[in-house]
């Protein structure tokens, strides 16, 4: 399944990059994340509770950051397993400077899901994931705007 989108942050690229690479901040933004811990600079583990239609369950996962070109781009590899299935994904994140101190984020990736999440939840997975990404990015933007104002 493809995940693709764009988002414009009301903050300069350097600032956006900082929060994107800060798991403490990210944790507070991604909906339903229960915990995140840093394994090393480029690897984080954590737990997230997903609710997809009739299904809900905790996923234990690992996020690895690769191909890092600060503050322009990186690759995120996500792997998670839980009682309602598994998910795997690789995504590219690109930050492009915009006029007026804004930053355009482009993201694109492939996600693979299996188990109950796929067989019962697939029809909803697309909209759930889109919703979660939108919510997360909005929250991240709020944090950035507040930081800028401070």
């Amino acid at each position: 399944m493809k995940i693709e989108g764009e988002y414009v942050f009301d903050a300069p690229r350097e600032e956006v990059w900082k929060v994107v690479r800060d798991p403490e901040v990210l944790t507070t933004c991604v909906p339903s994340v229960q915990s995140v811990s840093k394994v090393n600079e480029n690897e984080f583990t954590g737990e997230i509770v997903l609710r997809i239609g009739p299904l809900s369950g905790a996923f234990g996962g690992r996020v690895t950051v690769g191909n890092e070109v600060p503050p322009e781009s990186c690759t995120l590899t996500v792997e998670g397993t839980g009682k309602i299935g598994f998910l795997k994904g690789v995504g590219n994140v690109v930050l492009v400077e915009q006029d007026g101190g804004k930053t355009l984020m482009k993201y694109s990736g492939e996600a693979q899901i299996g188990g109950k999440v796929a067989s019962v939840g697939q029809r909803l997975f697309d909209s759930v994931s889109k919703g979660m990404i939108k919510q997360g990015l909005d929250k991240l933007n709020d944090i950035l705007v507040k930081r800028m104002a401070a």
Binding site: M1, Q112, G114, S119, V120, R123
Partner: peptide, 14 residues
């Protein structure tokens, strides 16, 4: 079935 062999409509809703 998706490209990984996962059945995507295993309920009478789908």
């Amino acid at each position: 079935v998706d490209e990984n062999g996962q059945l995507l409509n295993a309920s009478f809703a789908d």
